[in-house]
Simulated scan of single mutants.
Amino acid sequence: MKKKTIAIDMDGVLADIEHQLIQHYNKANGTNLSKESIQGLEEEEAFVDRAVVRSVLNADNFFRSLPVMPDAVESVRELQENFEIFIVSAATEFPVSLAEKVAWLGEHFPFIKWENIILCGSKRIINTDYMIDDHCKNLDYCMGKPIMFTAFHNINKTHHLRVNNWKEVVAVLNETL
Rank of each mutant, 00 (worst) to 15 (best):
residue 23 Q to R: 07
residue 32 N to I: 02
residue 67 P to C: 11
residue 79 L to S: 14
residue 46 A to C: 10
residue 97 S to A: 15
residue 89 S to D: 01
residue 13 V to T: 01
residue 82 N to S: 13
residue 82 N to R: 15
residue 64 R to T: 14
residue 101 K to S: 09
residue 82 N to I: 07
residue 30 G to C: 05
residue 47 F to S: 08
residue 79 L to R: 13
residue 45 E to D: 14
residue 26 N to Y: 03
residue 13 V to L: 00
residue 75 S to K: 02
residue 59 A to K: 15
residue 59 A to M: 03
residue 87 I to P: 00
residue 17 I to H: 10
residue 64 R to E: 13
residue 60 D to P: 11
residue 77 R to E: 13
residue 76 V to R: 01
residue 55 S to E: 14
residue 89 S to E: 02
residue 21 L to Y: 12
residue 47 F to V: 13
residue 34 S to T: 15
residue 90 A to E: 04
residue 53 V to R: 14
residue 49 D to P: 05
residue 24 H to C: 04
residue 9 D to T: 03
residue 93 E to G: 09
residue 36 E to T: 07
residue 38 I to W: 04
residue 65 S to P: 06
residue 49 D to T: 10
residue 50 R to S: 09
residue 61 N to Q: 12
residue 26 N to E: 01
residue 100 E to V: 03
residue 81 E to S: 04
residue 100 E to R: 04
residue 51 A to F: 08
residue 22 I to S: 04
residue 29 N to E: 11
residue 88 V to L: 01
residue 75 S to W: 00
residue 46 A to I: 05
residue 46 A to S: 09
residue 29 N to R: 15
residue 71 D to K: 14
residue 95 P to I: 09
residue 48 V to E: 11
residue 71 D to C: 09
residue 13 V to G: 00
residue 83 F to L: 13
residue 38 I to E: 02
residue 79 L to M: 12
residue 87 I to T: 00
residue 49 D to A: 05
residue 26 N to I: 02
residue 94 F to Q: 14
residue 93 E to T: 08
residue 99 A to D: 08
residue 67 P to Y: 06
residue 76 V to A: 13
residue 32 N to V: 02
residue 37 S to G: 04
residue 25 Y to I: 01
residue 39 Q to L: 14
residue 86 F to Y: 15
residue 56 V to D: 10
residue 100 E to D: 04
residue 47 F to N: 10
residue 62 F to H: 05
residue 45 E to Y: 08
residue 28 A to Y: 13
residue 13 V to E: 00
residue 22 I to R: 02
residue 23 Q to I: 07
residue 66 L to I: 11
residue 35 K to S: 15
